[in-house]
Structures are given as C-alpha cells and as structure tokens.
C-alpha cells in the first residue's frame, strides 16, 4: 500500500510540464491525485516520473469567453460546485459536481484528472458528452481540440496521446435545459447509473453513464408529454445500448434516472 519510487518534478508553467512530458515517455501528470494516487498506492500504476502541475496557475483558469465556459484542467470539483459563474452559465454542472466523491475529494480532484482517468461511472466525462464539450490538448507538437464524444473511447480509455496534456475543457453555453440524476449505493460513491437529459424545443437528448465503457449520448426527436410515453421511449433507447449481460439489471434504473433528470430539466428555468 505504498507507491513505488518515482522522480518528482514540480512544473510551474504549462510549457515546463510539456517539456518534461516530452523528455520522459513513462511519466504521469499529477493533478488532484484522487484517482492516480490510489492506483499508485496499490502499485497498479508505477510511473518512473511524476510531473506535478498543481503549481501551474494558467491551468486553474475558469472563464466565460466566446459563448463558452472554459474550465482549466486544474479547476477542482469544489470550484465547479460552488462557482456562481458556472451556475449561471451551465446550471447542471454544479448540480452534478456536488455528487462527485466527498468534500475532501472535491477539494483536490480536478476536471482534467477526471477527464484523463475516464472512469465510465464518473460524472464529469458524461457531462462533457451531454453538453457537447471539447477537450483541449497540448503537447510539444502543438495544440488540438477533440470533441468529448470522440475523446472518450471506452473503459478508462481516451484519445489522449503520448506527451499530451489536457489543458482545458470547453462547454458551449446552450439555450437547452439540462437535468441530472444518478443512482448510488452510498452518497459519494461512483454511480451505478446516471443520466443527463437535454430539453431543446420539442426534443433533445439523453446521455447515460455507468452503462458500458463510456458515456453514450442519444438523440430524442420529440419528448412524449406523458411519463408512460417517455418510459417506453427510454426503454427502447436503453435496449439499443450494447450492455454486458451482467449489467442487464441496470436497464430499469437507467430509465428511472433519465425520467428524474427529465423532471429536473423541466423544473429548471
């Protein structure tokens, strides 16, 4: 239960972190450490080099620019949960962020870390997919932007390449209304199933997480006005997801969380 030895570098700028990443192919980036350090304690992860980016002020920016909420990779879950700017721009985000882990976890965990880790049952990767967000990646070779829907590829698997650092995520400020709900065994746990529901005109979308290897966003042409009709529609949508047979029991839960998320989106003004 103790990490293996590693070389430790404390980066003070993004460029310095990128230089280190380019120099040390086996290195890992240390942000909040709330997923990486448990893996290191178990020695499931044994990086030779750890590049600590906690001192890189640029990565902690939170701003609204060009109709987008721009969230620096180092923005902590607690900031997302408590920031008035975030609540004003993308109200569903703080609702979801409050469900991440516990107080002590939210004080350290970062959006960049959550996105890099890509736990299929975690709230923020699914939020990015539901909200049609973009992940901004930088390396010594330059910058590229990847749509969240393409970034998350499967269980703990992303498009993040060798030498690349997640520097920011961008979420378009939308006129759609969003709701969020999840089922957990105990408060603070990873979700068994969660859903974001979007209401945009007569239709919208539903994004499920905790089902399969990555968040799945499915379009809805027109939401039925009655709960029974929505139930039928949601059941059909869940039926189409490629789920392991061991997760079959989650289908009913998925319908329930999506209906609750729909109700929440209804209430949001």
């Amino acid at each position: 239960m103790k990490p293996a030895a590693f070389q430790y570098f404390r980066a003070s700028t993004t460029d310095e972190a990128l230089d280190r990443l380019a120099q040390h192919p086996g290195s890992k980036v240390l942000a909040g450490g709330q997923s990486l350090v448990p893996l290191m304690n178990f020695r499931l992860s044994r990086p030779d080099v750890l590049i600590d980016i906690n001192g890189v002020a640029d990565l902690g920016r939170l701003a609204i620019e060009d109709g987008e909420l721009r969230i620096g990779a180092l923005v902590r879950h607690r900031q997302l949960a408590e920031s008035g700017d975030v609540a004003g721009a993308v109200p569903v985000l703080p609702l979801a962020a409050k469900h991440i882990g516990h107080w002590a976890i939210r004080n350290r965990g970062t959006i960049g870390g959550s996105v890099a880790h890509a736990d299929p049952a975690s709230e923020l990767p699914a939020a990015l997919v539901a909200l049609q967000g973009t992940v901004v990646l930088r390396s010594a070779r330059g910058e590229r932007r990847v749509a969240a829907e393409e970034f998350f590829q499967g269980f703990f698997n992303t498009d993040l390449g060798e030498g690349e650092l997640i520097v920011e995520v961008r979420i378009p400020i939308s006129k759609s209304r969003f709701g969020f709900n999840e089922v957990v065994r105990r408060p603070g746990d990873f979700a068994l199933v969660g859903a974001y529901v979007e209401r945009s005109g007569p239709g919208g979308s539903v994004t499920w997480f905790g089902l399969g290897g990555r968040p799945e966003r499915l379009l809805v042409d027109a939401w039925p006005q009655d709960a029974a009709g929505r139930g039928t529609l949601l059941e059909e949508l869940v039926e189409g997801l490629p789920l392991d047979v061991s997760e079959d029991y989650k289908r009913a839960m998925a319908v329930t969380v999506a209906e609750r998320a729909y109700q929440q989106a209804e209430g949001e003004k």
Binding site: Y8, L30, G33, V37, D52, A104, R108
Partner: peptide, 10 residues
C-alpha cells in the same frame, strides 16, 4: 483533504 492521497512533498 485525504493525507494518504497527497505526497508529503506536495
């Protein structure tokens, strides 16, 4: 914070 998830150097 969890002191088992932060390194002393940090």
């Amino acid at each position: 914070v969890r002191s088992c998830l932060i390194f002393g150097v940090q």
